[in-house]
Structures are given as C-alpha cells and as structure tokens.
Simulated assay, not measured.
Amino acid sequence: MEGMGQKRRPLVVMASSSSTAAAAARGGANPLAELSDRFKSMEAGLRAWLAKQPTHVEAAVATAVGVVQGGALGGLMGTLTPDGAAPFPVPQPPPGADSSAMASFKQAQALAGGPLVQARNFAVMTGANAGISCVIRRIRGVEDVQGSMAAAFGSGALFSIVSGMGTPNPVANAITTGVAFAVFQGGFFMIGQKFSQPPSEDIYYSRGRNMLKKLGLQNYENNFKKGLLTDQTLPLLNDSALRDVKIPPGPRLLILDHIQRDPELMRSN
C-alpha cells in the first residue's frame, strides 16, 4: 500500500503543477484587453454585415445606435445638472411677455432640462445625425465635409423643433439652428481631417526608403534620417557609415550588396 502511495505522489504533483500553470496563464491575460478585442471584432462584424444590407436597414440601425448613445449622454448630463438641484433654476416667464422673451425662455429651458428632457433632445440630435449621414454616404459613395454638414443641418433643425427652441417662429429658428450646427460640424470635420492625414514623406529619403522596404529593413529608416544618410549619399555608403548609425552587421551587408547591384542607386547624385 505504501508503495502504491509513493507511485501516486508524482501524478498528484504533475496535476497540481499543470493546473497552476493553466491558472497562471489565465490570470496573466488582461481582461480589459480581451474585452476591447471582443468589442472591436463585434463592431467590425456589424459593419461588415451592414455594408451588405440595403440602405434603409443600415440607416435604421445607425439611427437606433445614435438614439441610444445620445439618450444615454443626455440623461447623464441632465442627472448631473437637474433643474431642481441647479443653483440658478430657470425662472418662469412673466405673464404677457413678448415673443423675444418667450423664445429666450424656451432656449434656456431646452438646454437646462432634466434627465428625461436632455435624453430626448440628445437622442433626436444624435440619431438624426447618424441616420442622415448613413443615407448620404450610401447615395454619394463618399464621406466628406458636405455630407457631414448636411447631416448636422438636419439634426440641428430637428433638435430645435423637438426641444421647443423655435417659439414663436419654429421654422425660422430650425433653419438658423441647423445652419449653426452645420457650420460647427464642418469646421470640426476639416480640423479632424487635417490632423488625421499622414505626414508627407520626405523626398530626400525616398530612394533609401524604397530600398529598405525591398530588403525588409524598414525599421532602420529612422537610423538613416538620424545620420542624414539621404538619397545623395547612397552611392557613398560604406560599412563604417552604416555602423555609425547603429545598423547591425547583417543588415549592413544586405544594404551594401543591394546598392552595388542596383545601377539606379549607384547613379543617384
């Protein structure tokens, strides 16, 4: 019996070590990273599915998502600054107030409403913007500043009507609000497009960049720039110059051999 117990002990140890390793492997994973990856894959799958659907289906889904997002944002803003808890609540208009005073009151009431009011206003605004943007993108086949401004105009006009900011001239106020939304949206779109554009390639390193890409050594492009090894210096490169910019021996040999075999690089000046 004792011999049998001694034989079983290694099995218990092996099982314990393997389970510990599996637990460590599970514990080592980042749950936030896994959740982010799953969300990104689900989003990519949804976009791929929507791209195959008719325009009205994609527009309906985009509008619904925008309504949910806007409603949540508006409800949160209304909860943080509700009318009842505001230090300076919106006063009631005096009896017999003129049209301009009533319009100002309606605007203040729309922007300082409670959670339900803010949720409704933002849901209409973001939902309309998402739906109109989707339809315009499907029809025109491109997402540009004109389409963005058109969607912003529609969402601003609907926001003005739903929130009651248009009293006593709802049509004129809806147009004015829509134009204001379109101008702001167009400005933000152009600013974002400008900053999202990739930096222009440096023309002084174009030949060297292409050479490194062909050799699979594009990671050393910054080494060339730090050492000012422009295209004009390519015919003059030697092992010492490449070593000075901290390029390892193997890549140095590949670069020098490629330059000697390429007549275009040898003729560059």
Rank of each mutant, 00 (worst) to 15 (best):
D231F: 01
G84W: 12
A48G: 10
Q109C: 01
P199F: 09
F159T: 03
F195C: 05
F181D: 04
N269Y: 05
A151M: 03
D202W: 11
Q109E: 12
V13L: 11
T177V: 13
A22N: 08
K246T: 03
G75R: 10
T230I: 12
N30R: 03
P249H: 13
P93L: 13
K106W: 04
N223V: 05
G70E: 11
G164D: 06
A51P: 00
L46R: 00
F189P: 03
P95V: 09
E143R: 14
L256I: 09
Q69N: 06
V67P: 02
K226Y: 04
N222E: 14
G78H: 08
G5Q: 11
F153Q: 07
G71M: 09
T176G: 09
H258I: 01
G147M: 07
L212A: 02
E201I: 10
V171N: 00
P10F: 03
R8T: 08
Q185G: 02
A25F: 02
G74K: 06
A123W: 12
L242C: 02
K225V: 13
N223W: 02
A103N: 07
D257N: 15
P198E: 08
S19F: 09
D231R: 03
V67W: 10
M165P: 00
R137I: 04
Q92I: 07
M4D: 11
L116P: 00
V61Q: 13
G141V: 10
E221A: 03
A29Q: 13
P248I: 06
A33Q: 14
